[in-house]
């Protein structure tokens, strides 16, 4: 059982993601955020439970639904929102946007917009851990859709072949955009795909942050100890559509309601209150504090300057030459 302080920390992080994402949806509706914006609402327990089992200098790499992991890794909510607003103060100076949040100082190597694209890269981070014989490990997040891509299989094969310290975490929310996992995967129990590569596969309830944390802690210990890679399937649900432009007509309302009843945030709130670690009032107070933080982030993003025109030409290469694009 986790200490009450740690449980509260997990609660706070999940709530921060939830409230920030609500503000993201709102700002998208106001036209302040553009492009593809994939919300993490509903899946908070996975990022928070898993990332909290890591050391600060472990590597984390992600898919395009990266908001939750960025915040769970301790990324600055202001720089996060400013990135979505396309501002100069964004974490990627406004050049990445929703799908490409990265925070290299926190060893968070961000989102890729290509499904499965980050899987061999995760193995490469693992290769660096082994090459240097340091104590680090890698955590790689992706959805169920990624497990049908070619490079996913290449990445897992490499990881096992070279005994790389990588934890592959599949957030199985049962839909690749609008196509159900039963229509896209020969094996809908994703954790069993691990056996094809001779690595252990685990299934966890991705709506229960304490279970995610407990299993991840165990797996982190094994992987850090040299056991090689592992695959964890966290079953979860995104409450919203695939992206902001998806009304979700392919899902039954009854199914959505069922999953909303499993919401990880009230679930942990109940544990905290039942355990005597919090009261309804103290959690409401925390919510108000986080709402204020989210509001502050929106305000910061709103007031931040647009990128300067010359920023267009910067950041592509470490060393620039006269033939490179310039003003």
């Amino acid at each position: 059982m986790l200490q009450s302080r740690e449980m509260l920390r997990l609660y706070r992080q999940m709530l921060l993601i939830r409230r920030m994402e609500e503000r993201v949806a709102e700002s998208y509706g106001e036209g302040k955020i553009g492009g593809f914006t994939h919300l993490y609402i509903g899946q908070e327990a996975v990022a928070v439970g898993a990332i909290s089992a890591l050391n600060f200098d472990d590597y984390v790499i992600d898919t395009y639904r990266d908001h939750g992991h960025f915040l769970a890794r301790g990324g600055d909510p202001k720089k996060f929102m400013a990135e979505l607003f396309g501002k100069q103060t964004g974490i990627c100076k406004g050049k990445g946007g929703s799908m490409h949040m990265a925070d290299v100082e926190r060893y968070f190597f961000g989102g890729t917009g290509i499904v499965g694209g980050s899987i061999p890269i995760a193995a490469g981070l693992g290769l660096a851990c082994n090459y240097r014989e340091d104590d680090r490990i890698v955590m790689s997040f992706f959805g169920d859709g990624a497990t049908n891509q070619g490079v996913w299989h290449e990445g897992l094969n490499f990881a096992k072949l070279w005994n790389l310290p990588v934890i592959f975490i599949c957030e199985n929310n049962f839909y690749g955009i609008g196509t159900g996992v039963q229509f896209s995967s020969s094996l809908t129990e994703v954790h069993k795909k691990a056996s094809g590569y001779g690595m252990p596969g685990y299934r966890v309830n991705g709506m229960d942050v304490l279970e995610v944390r407990r299993v991840c802690e165990e797996v982190v210990k094994l992987v850090r100890g040299g056991a090689g890679p592992a695959l964890i399937e966290a079953r979860c649900y995104r409450y919203q559509g695939h992206s902001m432009t998806d009304p979700g007509r392919y899902r039954a309302r009854a199914e959505e309601e069922l999953w909303r009843k499993r919401d990880p945030i009230p679930r942990l709130a109940k544990d905290l209150i039942d355990g005597g670690f919090a009261t309804e009032e103290s959690l409401l107070e925390l919510d108000r504090e986080i709402e204020a933080l989210a509001e502050e982030a929106v305000q910061y993003a709103d007031e931040s300057p647009d990128p300067a025109p010359e920023a267009l030409y910067e950041d592509m290469f470490a060393v620039r030459y006269p033939s490179d694009p310039h003003a």
Binding site: I121, G124, L125, A128
Partner: peptide
């Protein structure tokens, strides 16, 4: 892809 990951980590 592995080369990209290794380079991210400074190799």
């Amino acid at each position: 892809g592995l080369a990209v990951g290794a380079a991210m980590a400074g190799l």
